[in-house]
Design a protein around this nucleic acid. Sequence first.
DNA 1: CTTGACGCATTAACAGTGTTAACTACTTTT
DNA 2: AAAAGTAGTTAACACTGTTAATGCGTCAAG
Lengths: 206, 206
Amino acid sequence: MGIAARKAKEKEDLRRAILDAARALFLQHGYERTSMRMIAQRIAYSPTTLYLYFKDKDAIFHALHSEAFQLLGGRLAPLAHVADPMERLFAMGRVYLHFALEHPELYDLMFIMEAPMCVVDEMHIWEEGDNVFRVLTATVGEAMKQKKLRKGDVEITSFLIWGTVHGMAALHVRDRCFKVISPEKHEHLLEDGLDLFISWLKGLKP
Amino acid sequence: MGIAARKAKEKEDLRRAILDAARALFLQHGYERTSMRMIAQRIAYSPTTLYLYFKDKDAIFHALHSEAFQLLGGRLAPLAHVADPMERLFAMGRVYLHFALEHPELYDLMFIMEAPMCVVDEMHIWEEGDNVFRVLTATVGEAMKQKKLRKGDVEITSFLIWGTVHGMAALHVRDRCFKVISPEKHEHLLEDGLDLFISWLKGLKP
DNA sequence: CTTGACGCATTAACAGTGTTAACTACTTTT
DNA sequence: AAAAGTAGTTAACACTGTTAATGCGTCAAG
């Protein structure tokens, strides 16, 4: 069945082409400001063809959303080998923040934009986010067990840590911080903020 | 000139009516999903009339944006009377978070959405945000001077604190946390997160 | 009192949006 | 060779933000 296989491959290729075009345009102009017609034009197909491969615009978004989470997951995975849970936690923070700085539009799409969560609403679960959060809670729990982090509710502590890093990332991605912070600090603002947070975590009285 | 005054009042009334209608619709359906025609219909005017009072949709947004900052500012102002800077800092955090919980859509509009910042871009200044941030830096600076908060760069420390509270608020407003956190903790998640953060700030070794 | 100007609001229109229905080719199966 | 299925198209619908042209009513000046 060489022919059927070739056809399946061509179908998959077009699917990928759509996603590539959509990603490029979403990242360049934002979700709301890129139209189905623009995506179609970029790959020289009719706009309605997109609907043969994706239910609607949100479905394209959701596919990219999952893709981005795979990228972040791939960067977080190697840190599993860091033995000390505190060091692992800090490394995760740095990787996470670095990801947000390197791919602000992807980060936006994953943790800030509203579109993808509508799809998620229906199944009451956000698998991609849940996976990342579980890695965090596991690390926090381990650190607490080893008494390297002040004991407390693991979930709430993890939420606070996630919120802290996300908050700085979100203020940056949505351009709220460079408008209020002295220009000379812009360059390393987020790294400095994270370093300060880490030093706080280290210097926490038990 | 009673007539001229009445006319001016009528003009101002209509302006307010537009803003009221726009606010209600923005908060109910979100910015992108409410159209100029919907706003116009709600006050029984032609859609084009809105353009006699506001340059475009973004201008309406920006007006509401400023309005919301006045509301938050009004809640933050009384805290100036709290003598102890640390207590003042904590109270500010609670007021800020409470505001985000009570008016999630307004908070979204102020600190998350992209629309209003485009207008701000042109003048390179974000006055409303700057005012709030300056109150924060002043308090942080005072707390450091009194050695009640670990010494460090005031701006970066303030940014970290803002980021932490904003992060939790943003995850809530954009519905990223209830999908990964155990249901029984939803109710007080943000308050508990803030309380934990405050306890960390209190228990910081000098 | 009439004329002209001005301000406010309207209708009509433009170019664009996401999405669906109907239709055309072309392949595969019967 | 006829029927069924597949992949892509064009045309259309009901919207969107926004602008141009137009009407209507009130005021000031001649």
